[in-house]
């Protein structure tokens, strides 16, 4: 029988000060450098940021599929693992990446969908047999039952002629259908957490609307937690309950979706929101911009990673000390920000 521990809203997944670094020959890349967040059942957490902010590496770290020469060097990934009807808290950062527990969790309890479903499916096997394989990996079903279940899954994600589609190859499906098939495969083991890494970036807007609707519907039906990784602030605003904003491997701000969009505190969050044109903004006027470009990962600025692009840069502070993610003074808010405009430096790291 399923557990009922959700009563006191214990987070399913809690990431604490995660650091994933890459060690290529040229030097160290601190892809994720102290990320913390949590997500509860039935909730959607958005991780937003631009290229190189570490959002995808964070997702890969949770599933322990970070590629060589990357390594989790510090931090905790606390997950409520379900075995024999009990829930045990496991630190995914500590267990073996290819041990039995992680293999049970990866693709089973925590599933992931990727940006480009074309490269996520094998081009030489029918999608049916790939979904069947995923099902049988995490359940004792026989071939025939697994195939029936695969067809059910395709129907659940809104693919018509499901039985016939099982025999088709990835290239025969359109972008939207492929993404649906990808979601069906991810759902095969009834995951409790679904990580969606840019699930709609390769799709057209009308298809994107279909897929976002589908994800929302599935969440209502299955109660899973979703971690949505995207650079599209529109998608975040429509889908998420809480939002984590990342910049160069660090969480710069975290809070409810309403707080992030209507009361952003960190200069980066503010500028990011101002710099995007929307359907309601005034046309053909200059947009506020963030000066400069995202630094090269080998060229990470000292102190606050955003200080050299920040309009509110405090000389002597922002370039010397690394800000920590902390709660705002206002008690009622659960908004966290990592910026010296709100906190005094506490460390002496330079």
């Amino acid at each position: 029988m399923a557990t009922r521990a959700a009563g006191k809203r214990r987070p399913l997944l809690r990431v604490q000060n995660l650091k994933t670094h890459f060690f290529p020959d040229e030097g160290t890349v601190r892809a994720v450098d102290g990320a913390s967040f949590e997500v509860c059942a039935g909730q959607t957490l958005g991780i937003v940021g631009e290229s190189g902010c570490g959002k995808s590496v964070t997702a890969r770290s949770i599933l322990r599929i970070v590629e060589h020469p990357g390594e989790i060097v510090e931090g905790e990934i606390r997950y409520l693992h379900r075995t024999d009807g009990r829930e045990v808290e496991l630190d995914l950062a500590q267990i073996s990446a290819d041990g039995p527990e992680m293999r049970q969790i990866r693709g089973g309890e925590i599933a992931m969908i990727f940006q480009e479903p074309m490269t996520s499916f094998s081009p030489v096997h029918p999608i049916g047999s790939q979904i069947v394989e995923a099902i049988r990996l995490h359940s004792p079903l026989g071939k025939r039952e697994a195939r029936e279940r695969a067809a059910d899954l395709l129907r659940q994600v809104g693919i018509s002629r499901a039985e016939a589609r099982l025999n088709e190859y990835a290239y025969q499906l359109s972008g939207g259908l492929r993404q649906r098939a990808m979601i069906a495969m991810a759902l095969s083991a009834e995951p409790r957490v679904l990580i969606a890494d840019e699930p709609t970036t390769a799709l057209d807007v009308t298809t994107q609307a279909q897929i976002l609707d589908l994800l929302r519907q599935l969440q209502t039906d299955l109660g899973m937690a979703i971690i949505l990784i995207t650079h599209n602030l529109g998608v975040v605003a429509e889908m998420c309950d809480t939002v984590v904003v990342m910049y160069l491997g660090r969480v710069v701000e975290e809070g409810s979706v309403d707080a992030i969009f209507h009361n952003p505190k960190h200069p980066y969050t503010r500028l990011l929101l101002q710099s995007i044109p929307s359907l309601h903004s005034e046309a053909r006027v200059p947009l506020p911009t963030i000066s400069g470009a995202i630094p090269h990962p080998y060229n990470r600025p000292e102190g606050c990673p955003f200080h050299n692009r920040c309009p509110q840069f405090i000389p002597g502070t922002c370039d010397r000390h690394v800000p920590e993610l902390q709660a705002l003074d206002e008690e009622e808010s659960d908004q966290l920000v990592s910026c010296f405009l709100y906190h005094e430096p506490t460390d002496e790291r330079a």
Binding site: Q208, A209, A237, D258
Partner: peptide, 25 residues
Amino acid sequence: EALLSSVPEPDPRRRSQRIVLEGEV
């Protein structure tokens, strides 16, 4: 109309009912 309604807006207070087009292009 459908195209306009499927653009997600960067404002959670404007979450709207989208016209979701059926099928494919």
